[in-house]
């Protein structure tokens, strides 16, 4: 053992924070504008996948350009769940226990990632969920304009 001086532990609570702006581009930009201004979820019909959400402007199957815009319903079926029992404040989208979900919205052929915060004991693969929109004055053109999804069955 070294004879180096010792002392009581010293700790400090620190935060690293990286604030940034992310350019959305035209397709995601219009998708977000639809949520903000119309409270609608718009998808794009793409070759190989059907109606894709979120709309990225091309087919993730073969790279071909996206076709027409298609409105889908703000409710659907849960296809995957990741539960977060101990959220980290400001890092996670909820301060209380919540679940990340993939939801296959009615009219869509791919799944959207979002969160469920209530009734987690009723949340399973196959559960029906519905978007809970933020009030008009709080929607800013973000995926979080949908505050969360709630379990409806």
């Amino acid at each position: 053992m070294s004879s180096a001086p010792r002392t009581e532990p010293m700790t400090a609570e620190m935060v690293s924070e990286f604030v940034y702006k992310h350019s959305t581009g035209n397709d995601i930009g219009r998708f977000l504008a639809g949520m903000k201004d119309q409270k609608k979820i718009w998808c794009q019909r793409v070759r190989g996948l059907g109606v894709a959400v979120p709309p990225v402007g091309y087919s993730e199957a073969d790279g071909s350009p996206a076709g027409e815009w298609v409105e889908v319903q703000p409710r659907g079926t849960v296809t995957a769940i990741a539960r977060v029992f101990r959220p980290i404040a400001e890092l996670h989208p909820s301060d209380l226990p919540f679940a990340y979900i993939l939801v296959r919205l009615e009219g869509a052929d791919t799944a959207l990632a979002h969160i469920v915060v209530d009734d987690l004991d009723r949340l399973f693969i196959g559960s029906r969920v519905e978007a809970v929109w933020k009030p008009d004055e709080e929607r800013i053109g973000s995926i979080r304009d949908i505050a969360h999804f709630r379990v409806i069955g």
Partner: peptide, 15 residues
């Protein structure tokens, strides 16, 4: 379109 979204990565830790 919406032009951009603002976001942040928030990483609390104990030093």
């Amino acid at each position: 379109p919406v032009k951009y979204i603002e976001s942040k990565i928030h990483l609390p830790y104990d030093y």
